[in-house]
Amino acid sequence: MIDTLAFNYRKQLFAYDPSHVKGLSNPLTKAQIKTNNIKMNAYEMKLFLNTILLMNGDLIDEFDSVYKFLITFIKIVDIVMYEEFSDDILNELRALIVDHHTFYTTGFKEKLKPKHHFMVHYVNCIKELGPLKFLWCFRFEGKHAEFKKYANNITSRKNIPLTLATKYCFQFCSYLFGNSFFQNDLVDCKNFSPIDLSKLEFYQNLCTKFTIGNEVLSMRYKGVLYEKNYYVKSKNTVLLILKIFFDLHNEIFLICQECKTSFSEKFQSHEVLGTNNAYYLKKIDLKSVPSKLYTLNDGKKVVRFF
Rank of each mutant, 00 (worst) to 15 (best):
L129A: 02
G130P: 04
G130A: 03
K133L: 11
L135M: 10
C137G: 15
C137N: 14
C137V: 12
F138S: 04
R139W: 14
E141L: 09
E141A: 09
E141M: 08
H144Y: 09
H144M: 09
E146T: 13
F147Y: 07
K148S: 06
K148C: 08
Y150E: 07
A151F: 10
A151P: 00
N153L: 07
N153Y: 00
R157V: 00
I160R: 01
I160F: 03
P161G: 00
T166P: 12
T166L: 15
T166M: 10
C169N: 09
Q171R: 08
Q171C: 02
S174I: 14
S174R: 15
S174T: 14
Y175I: 04
Y175P: 00
F177G: 11
F177D: 06
G178E: 05
N179C: 06
N179Q: 14
N179I: 09
F181T: 11
F182D: 15
D185K: 15
L186Y: 08
D188H: 14
K190D: 14
K190P: 03
S193I: 06
P194W: 00
I195P: 03
I195N: 07
L197S: 01
L197G: 01
S198W: 12
K199N: 03
E201Y: 13
E201S: 14
E201G: 12
F202M: 00
Q204N: 05
Q204I: 09
Q204D: 10
Q204W: 10
